[in-house]
Amino acid sequence: MDKTENSEKRALIDKLKAMAISPSCCPELQKATLSYLSAVAFEQVAVKSFLASLNEAVDMSHQTLIEKVKDMAVTPTCCPVLRQAAKTYLSALTAEKNAAKNLLKEIEADISDINHLVAFSHSDRAVEKFGAERAKIFAANADALKASGAKFCNCFACTTAREILAEKNVLLE
């Protein structure tokens, strides 16, 4: 089996798992699906055990563990309490990833580039927000920052936001 076939099979198996644990899956279909997934899982465990015996320590990534939780939840010997705990965890994980995506979108939209900062610092809104004297200092600082070649605002929120965006995969994986 080549790599494309492998990933197609994996995608299909993921669909079967999602279907089998969905509340609207009828018992007959669930039974047949679980039986098939169980056979596939046994085969995978056998292969992995063999590979593990060749190279004892198996460190797993978070993604691999999530796949294992899914595999376990669809085995016929998984008790209902454990299956429910796995389902609850997987739903919470999906919600977390969605919240992370939304958060990153907000952060990306919110970082001020240098032109935006300079324009704001010279605006009436800056005077409203900081008062005339502080707005003058703010505008001078923004001009100096642009002259130094900076591309973004250097306030604490924007600086931290850029550090977070540089590591966004930590939140998404």
């Binding site: 705990a85 609850t88 965890y89 919470a92 994980l93 919600a95 977390e96 969605n98 919240a99 992370a100």
Partner: peptide, 16 residues
């Protein structure tokens, strides 16, 4: 929102 959802996920993982 993210921190609240993360807290729920942590409870779910500890429960699991």
């Amino acid at each position: 929102v993210y921190l609240a959802v993360l807290a729920v996920e942590q409870v779910a993982v500890n429960n699991l």
